[in-house]
């Protein structure tokens, strides 16, 4: 009697868990993140020091901004690989403009202009994706080379080592500071606040506005969305402009945080960002995903990148681990979906 009970209970409990996971895949991301953090702090307690936590927080700002942009496009069933080129483009040209022409431009205006510049390049993406009607991956591979080629061939290749003062000051402005055990001052910079602000804005757009409805509708089924009366052109332009704006902002923050503007930076990190978004539970075919999951995915990638060395795995393994994570996560999510259907 009790044996049959157990047999009955086991599968139903398992399928309840699978059901939960397929509805909220970010739970798995959270569990993996937690498991890694616990394992690492057991192996190397230095991980739990405030300094390394602040480092992780700092490192996740730029990637987090990128990831929010990629996520919103992924939710609509597209993909973008040109955002790093947009970030490098706006970061470098904005720094040049400020340095050579308007040295006393207030930092707020620099940030606004960079965001607007990124959005403008994003509009180019959106128009091309809408009018060429080919997978956005192919279009944005093209624009990635286009933007980066324009930057390196016509704008400049010189590494700017000394930023304009207001940008440098923005990178150093502290949110809070404290003394660590060994007497060093640890700073969580002010720009860290940009990430939660952008996350809140993205969450608000996706869950509280008609545009958010439209984005998920487009990701779920493009032709149905069109028949419902959503203007695909407006959605496409908004999506890519929003992602471009976030990328422009991320570019300036990247420069301010590193205290230099290198035109060769950033491009090449796209796959890490896409991996973060996918690990956060957004399906690459669109229609699903949450902002919280995306942030968890970003944290997971940043943590994996920074703890490998701490637990004694050589840094050459970084790509294998991230690549393996992408495939495992993708396979697992598909498995859950199949079980449910």
């Amino acid at each position: 009697m009790s044996a049959t009970h157990l047999q009955d209970a086991a599968p139903s409990r398992r399928s309840a868990f699978l059901d939960l996971v397929s509805r909220r895949p970010e739970i798995i991301t959270f569990i993996i993140l937690l498991a890694i953090c616990v394992a690492v702090s057991v192996i190397n307690p230095a991980f739990l020091q405030p300094s390394s936590l602040v480092d992780i927080g700092r490192a996740s700002v730029v990637m987090g901004l990128f990831a929010l942009g990629v996520f919103i496009i992924l939710a609509a069933g597209g993909i973008d690989v040109s955002f790093t080129a947009i970030a490098a483009f706006t970061m470098y040209s904005m720094t040049l403009v400020v340095k050579d022409h308007v040295p006393d431009m207030p930092i707020a205006l620099v940030l606004v202009l960079a965001t607007a510049g990124g959005a403008l390049l994003g509009v180019v993406n959106g128009l091309l994706v809408h009018h060429l009607r080919v997978p956005s991956l192919i279009v944005t591979i093209g624009t990635q080379y286009l933007f980066r080629g324009i930057l390196l061939a016509f704008i400049g290749t010189v590494w700017i080592m000394s930023l304009p003062t207001q940008m440098g000051a923005f990178g150093r402005m502290p949110l809070f500071q404290f003394e660590s055990g060994d007497g060093r001052t640890i700073t969580l910079p002010f720009y860290f606040l940009v990430l939660p602000a952008a996350a809140l804005l993205t969450w608000w757009i996706l869950s509280r506005t008609l545009m958010g409805r439209a984005i998920f509708a487009l990701g779920g089924n493009a032709s149905v969305a069109e028949r419902l009366g959503y203007s695909l052109k407006t959605i496409h332009i908004f999506l890519f402009a929003y992602a471009g704006a976030l990328a422009g902002l991320a570019g300036i923050i990247h420069a301010a945080a590193n205290r230099q503007a290198n035109p060769f930076d950033l491009v090449g990190s796209e796959i890490n960002v896409i991996a973060a978004v996918v690990l956060g539970g957004a399906r690459i075919t669109g229609g699903t995903g949450t902002v919280l999951g995306t942030l968890l995915g970003v944290l997971l990638i940043v943590v994996v990148n920074s703890v490998l060395v701490m637990v004694g795995i050589p840094s050459t393994w970084q790509r294998v681990v991230v690549g393996g994570f992408i495939l495992l996560a993708a396979g697992f999510f598909m498995f859950c979906q199949k079980k449910n259907n």
């Binding site: 796959i271 690459i284 075919t285 050459t316 970084q318 294998v320 690549g323 993708a330």
Partner: peptide, 29 residues
């Protein structure tokens, strides 16, 4: 991966691109 696990080709080959590059890095240091 694409046919049995139904992973989207873009995602699958992005992952294996990183995996293959990573294995090459590990092998050759």
């Amino acid at each position: 991966l694409i046919s049995r696990l139904n992973i989207t080709p873009i995602l699958c080959t992005l992952g294996t691109q990183m995996l293959f590059t990573g294995i090459a890095v590990v092998l050759s240091d």
